[in-house]
């Protein structure tokens, strides 16, 4: 008797990839972030004038043909300052997000996968750090040591990593009991490979989401510090600093304070949208697509 039907039917072959088209909001966010990244990389060249050039005769001008976004109280061109300010605004959060997530991945994998005392030490330490009011600690330290921007970045890395560690540990715990881990063990895969080669790709969605959220968190934290007068030195074109410097100009040139605020909001919002989208893409990609 022929049992040819036992061979898989052609229709049951590879499952088709039905790639989800990104929504308009996601595309818009991507465009915004690309524009901001451009500004951060090429800010000085894009700026129409020197952001530091003062001209007291032009102070507090509203937007016009000479200065598209007007000038501040020293007569400095707002557009130039905003463009040049993109780098300090985004550079710090990028570094915080990358370093904090890298630390969280290593610690989370160790804690979730190894268990035992390693887990106890890592997680209790994380709990302790999480118990601190992060922003307050940064304000106090940066204020005391006058270390400025880079000290704030380092502090933020230390204070952001624990929450990521927690999230990643729980993702690892969900993977650790799956049979593919045991199967890999029976062919003799080492623990390190199990963690970084076998588990890590399967929790990539969580890692990416945590990366992007850390970025948003530290973007806001760093600009708050600038707003308070900590962090970047006086005179630097920093969005947070511009907010506080140009508060008094709201009557004459509102865009001097509004422009950096809008850019901060756009950056944070786009990153959140993108994080959401990346997470859902990676989650479903893991399970079905090739």
């Amino acid at each position: 008797m022929s049992l040819q039907f036992l061979a898989p039917k052609p229709s049951a072959g590879p499952r088709r990839i039905r790639s989800e088209r990104p929504t308009a909001l996601v595309l818009l966010s991507l465009c915004c972030l690309a524009a901001l990244a451009m500004a951060a990389l090429l800010g000085r060249r894009l700026a129409p004038t020197d952001p530091a050039r003062q001209n007291l005769s032009e102070s507090g001008l509203p937007p016009g043909s000479a200065h598209l976004l007007g000038t501040d109280s020293f007569g400095r061109d707002i557009l130039s300052r905003v463009l040049v300010g993109a780098r300090p605004a985004l550079e710090g959060p990028c570094i915080v997000a990358l370093c904090a997530t890298a630390a969280a991945v290593v610690l989370g994998l160790l804690a979730g996968f190894r268990g035992g005392w390693i887990e106890a030490v890592i997680m209790r330490a994380a709990d302790m750090v999480l118990a601190l009011p992060a922003l307050l600690v940064v304000i106090v330290t940066v204020g005391l040591f006058t270390g400025g921007y880079w000290l704030a970045v380092v502090m933020l890395i230390v204070l952001t990593a624990p929450s990521g560690t927690r999230v990643i540990r729980s993702a690892v715990l969900a993977q650790r009991t799956l049979p593919y881990i045991e199967a890999a063990r029976t062919v003799g895969v080492t623990n390190r490979r199990l963690m970084f080669v076998h588990i890590l790709p399967n929790i990539s969605a969580t890692v990416v989401a945590s990366l992007l959220l850390d970025f948003v968190g530290s973007l806001i934290a760093l600009s708050s510090l600038s707003f308070l007068g900590l962090g970047s030195p006086p005179g630097t074109p920093d969005w947070g600093k511009m907010l506080v410097e140009n508060r008094g100009l709201l009557e004459q040139n509102p865009s001097a304070a509004v422009a950096p605020a809008v850019l901060l909001i756009v950056a944070a919002f786009s990153m959140t949208v993108l994080g959401d989208w990346a997470y859902s893409r990676l989650e479903e990609g893991k399970n079905v697509r090739d």
Partner: peptide, 27 residues
Amino acid sequence: QCVFQDPYSSLNPSHRVGYILGEAIRL
């Protein structure tokens, strides 16, 4: 060596078949 019950979870979903087999061979 072992073959596990549930083929849906005993293979790492992130790795390609070539990698899964290659890893065992290399080990």
